[in-house]
Computed example of a mutant assay.
Amino acid sequence: MVEPENLVLEHLRGIRTEMAKMADWMQTLSVEMTAIRQHLAGVVTIQEHDHTDLAAIKLRLDRIERRLELTE
C-alpha cells in the first residue's frame, strides 16, 4: 500500500510535470503569435501601399478621361 504522504508527493510531481509542459506550450504559442502579428503588420502595410497606388491610378485615369473628353 502507498503511504498517503508519498501519494501526495507523486501527485504533486505529476502536476509539476504537466505544468512544465504547459509552460513550454504557452511559450511556443507566444512566439507563434508574435510571428503572426508581424506578418499581419506586413500585410496591412502592403494593403495600404496598394490602396495608395490604386488611388493615384484612378486620379490619372480620371484626368486622362477628362482630357480626351470621355467622361459622361
Rank of each mutant, 00 (worst) to 15 (best):
61 L>G: 01
61 L>I: 06
34 T>Y: 02
33 M>N: 06
41 A>D: 09
45 T>K: 14
30 S>P: 04
34 T>H: 11
18 E>S: 11
22 M>I: 15
58 K>Q: 06
64 I>W: 00
29 L>P: 06
48 E>A: 08
3 E>A: 14
16 R>L: 15
58 K>T: 04
68 L>W: 07
53 D>Y: 13
57 I>R: 02
44 V>W: 10
4 P>A: 00
57 I>Q: 02
12 L>C: 08
13 R>H: 11
65 E>C: 05
69 E>W: 04
4 P>G: 01
25 W>M: 10
61 L>C: 03
61 L>W: 01
8 V>F: 12
65 E>W: 03
10 E>S: 11
2 V>E: 13
64 I>H: 00
54 L>P: 01
16 R>V: 05
56 A>M: 01
12 L>T: 04
23 A>R: 11
57 I>T: 02
24 D>E: 11
44 V>N: 08
15 I>P: 05
61 L>A: 11
66 R>N: 02
54 L>G: 01
8 V>I: 14
72 E>F: 12
18 E>R: 06
22 M>T: 12
70 L>Q: 02
39 H>Y: 13
13 R>I: 11
18 E>T: 09
8 V>G: 05
22 M>P: 07
10 E>A: 10
41 A>H: 10
14 G>C: 00
3 E>T: 10
52 T>M: 03
59 L>K: 13
26 M>I: 07
11 H>V: 14
19 M>D: 09
50 D>H: 07
20 A>C: 08
1 M>S: 10
58 K>W: 05
11 H>M: 15
41 A>Y: 05
67 R>P: 01
20 A>E: 13
69 E>P: 03
52 T>F: 03
44 V>Q: 12
20 A>N: 14
23 A>M: 12
13 R>C: 08
68 L>P: 03
55 A>W: 09
13 R>P: 07
51 H>E: 08
